[in-house]
Lab assay of single mutants.
Amino acid sequence: LAALHAEGPLAGLPVTRSDARVLIFNEWEERKKSEPWLRLDMSDKAIFRRYPHLR
């Protein structure tokens, strides 16, 4: 499970980098069924690119 911001401008976004990794992994797991070539990237760089508020 990932903790998400409940309200405000960040509502629905992950609270920590660990939470972001959970979301990225879950999405990758779903997408790899139809796109088996996808690589999993959970590096800090990938997290910041996707969720800049975690910098």
Rank of each mutant, 00 (worst) to 15 (best):
Y51S: 00
L13R: 04
R21T: 04
E7L: 09
W37H: 11
A6V: 14
L10H: 10
I47P: 00
A11T: 12
I24L: 12
R49C: 11
M42L: 15
G12Y: 06
G8Y: 05
M42I: 14
L13K: 07
D19T: 02
Y51G: 00
A6N: 12
K33N: 11
L40K: 02
T16H: 08
P14T: 01
I47D: 00
G8M: 05
A11Q: 13
L4A: 05
E7V: 13
D19K: 02
A2W: 05
R21Q: 10
D41Y: 06
R17A: 13
H5W: 13
P52F: 02
L23A: 05
W28M: 02
S43Y: 01
A3H: 15
W28R: 01
P36W: 07
W28P: 00
I24Y: 03
L13Q: 09
D41A: 03
L10K: 05
E29K: 15
G8D: 05
A20K: 00
H5Y: 13
R49G: 11
D44F: 08
R49E: 14
F25P: 00
E30D: 10
R39C: 15
S34P: 02
N26G: 08
L10F: 14
R17T: 14
A6R: 13
L54G: 00
V15R: 12
L40P: 06
D44I: 11
S43F: 02
L54F: 04
P52Q: 03
F25D: 01
A20W: 01
E30S: 12
S43H: 03
P52G: 03
R17V: 15
L40C: 08
H5P: 03
H53Q: 01
G8R: 03
A46L: 08
P36H: 08
D19I: 03
L10Q: 05
R55G: 09
F25R: 11
R21C: 12
R39N: 11
A46Q: 08
L54Y: 00
M42Y: 08
R50M: 08
L1W: 10
R21N: 03
W28G: 01
H53R: 07
L13I: 03
E27R: 04
W28K: 00
D44P: 08
V15N: 04
A3P: 04
Y51H: 05
P52I: 02
S18Y: 15
S43T: 11
Y51M: 00
R31A: 09
M42E: 06
E7Q: 12
A20C: 02
R49V: 11
Y51L: 06
I24N: 00
I24D: 00
T16I: 01
S18V: 10
H53C: 01
V22N: 08
I24P: 00
F25M: 10
G8K: 08
P9G: 05
P52K: 04
S43D: 04
L4I: 11
T16N: 11
I24H: 01
D41R: 03
F48H: 07
L10P: 04
K45R: 13
A3F: 12
R50K: 13
R17N: 08
S34C: 13
D44R: 08
G12C: 09
V15P: 02
E35C: 11
T16R: 09
R49Y: 12
L40R: 02
K33H: 11
K33S: 10
D41L: 04
P14C: 01
R55P: 05
F48K: 06
L23I: 11
I24C: 07
P9C: 09
T16G: 07
K45L: 12
